[in-house]
């Protein structure tokens, strides 16, 4: 199987640059606003989109994404709205995945969830709280729906375990840059490069780095050693500091343009 996401990394590798991967929770800031954010992502040069499935108990997320998820949940976002956002992103021709905690998948139906990803032209799913030890029913479903199963690894993940986790990964390996939760930070942890180097010793799958990436400089730095740069909270902050949806969308667009330069500058 080859998903649009797989094809993207073939392309960015041939261009000797990193891919810019942008995150937005479905239904944020509103259902329509989310589609406008996705359009801004597509227009301004994002390479791949992560649609977040807002969840009531997001233990991997810092305050920015928690609050965005709450806002979205209060507005009634559920699986239907997540797949609508995914369909909107893929219709723009952008390789897209869903990022979700495990329980919403289990409640929706494991096989059915994988099938709905595929039927909305999604490339795969990132599951931040599903260790590979519990993942057999899920990877069985992703294989039969021919979508990517993307797992998250951390600086604390041992080499032996990296081998085990990346063996179940496809699309890319999500490397958490630091020990902690999502959120914009002033600098990129020095542990990120070490982790990417360790991952590259055990797998040929592309590696994308997330957690704390928010500026062109960060993107440039990460692009120096990783195949993908993941940005999330910084877009939510941009939307939140704007006084209207329109100016928020403009701010998102500007940030994407900056980050898109960053991912092209890292290889010197």
């Amino acid at each position: 199987m080859t998903t649009p996401l797989d094809q993207l990394f073939t392309k960015t590798r041939s261009e000797n640059r990193a891919a810019l991967i942008a995150y937005i929770p479905a239904g944020y800031p509103t259902q329509e606003g989310c589609k406008a954010v996705i359009d801004a992502f597509a227009d301004a040069g994002v390479d791949a989109i992560e649609i977040g499935f807002p969840y009531s108990d997001p233990v991997m997320d810092g305050p920015t994404i928690q609050e965005a998820a709450n806002t979205s949940l209060e507005a009634g976002t559920g699986a239907k709205e997540v797949f609508e956002a995914l369909a909107h992103a893929t219709a723009r021709g952008i390789p897209s995945v869903v990022m979700t905690y495990w329980n919403p998948i289990e409640k929706y139906g494991i096989e059915k969830f994988a099938k709905s990803i595929a039927s909305n032209s999604g490339s795969g799913v990132i599951t931040p709280d599903l260790p590979v030890d519990e993942a057999l029913p899920w990877t069985t479903a992703t294989h039969s729906s021919e979508i990517n199963s993307i797992f998250v690894v951390a600086p604390s993940t041992t080499d032996a375990r990296l081998e085990k986790v990346t063996a179940q990964c496809s699309g890319f390996v999500y490397a958490a840059s630091l020990m902690g939760v999502t959120g914009a930070r002033t600098g990129i942890s020095s542990g990120a490069k070490d982790l990417v180097d360790r991952i590259k010793k055990v797998t040929k799958i592309p590696v994308a780095v997330g957690l704390g990436v928010s500026t062109r400089e960060h993107a440039k730095e990460v692009a120096g050693y990783a195949d993908g740069v993941i940005v999330g909270s910084a877009f939510i902050n941009a939307l939140n500091s704007a006084d209207s949806l329109d100016s928020g969308i403009k701010a998102v667009r500007t940030l994407v343009e900056q980050l898109a330069l960053g991912v092209r500058e890292g290889r010197g």
Partner: peptide, 12 residues
Amino acid sequence: GGRYVPEALIGA
């Protein structure tokens, strides 16, 4: 039962 946690906690 089982373990449904971020990979960061598996070692701990």
